[in-house]
């Protein structure tokens, strides 16, 4: 097996700790594509969730709460807390930690009332 691993074009160290999670797992994703977040273009990788693409871009918050208007993003990471709700291509209340990104997706931060039609 090749001792060089690719992750976003960077070369890996194979001894000791990796520098990134992708390097650790020897990730060789397909070519990056573009998504937009509130109109701003961002790169994303095939296989990433919306939350992973945002984290990879250093974005941790993409929703504001209904009462206090406070910023929120991923908390539980496994689809249980609903803190990561986001608007994807105009559809509100999607869980960013579960939904995968696709080329051209328009991600919108979500303000206030996000309850939509959830029948909780």
């Amino acid at each position: 097996m090749s001792r060089r691993q690719r992750w976003s074009g960077r070369e890996a160290r194979v001894d000791g700790a990796a520098r990134t999670p992708g390097e650790l797992a020897g990730a060789r994703p397909g070519p990056a594509f573009e998504i937009t977040v509130d109109g701003r273009a961002l790169p994303a990788l095939p296989g990433q969730t919306v939350a992973a693409a945002l984290w990879a871009a250093g974005i941790l918050a993409w929703r504001t709460t209904r009462a206090g208007g406070k910023p929120r993003g991923v908390f539980c990471g496994i689809g249980q807390c609903f803190d990561c709700l986001v608007t994807v291509n105009g559809v509100a209340n999607r869980r960013a930690c579960l939904v995968g990104v696709r080329p051209g997706d328009a991600i919108g931060t979500q303000e206030g009332e996000g309850r939509g039609e959830l029948a909780v």
Binding site: Q5, G22, L24, A25, G26, A27, R28, G47, Q48, T49
Partner: peptide, 8 residues
């Protein structure tokens, strides 16, 4: 995810 192509 499979598309992330993790070889390890």
């Amino acid at each position: 995810a499979a598309a992330l192509g993790a070889t390890r």
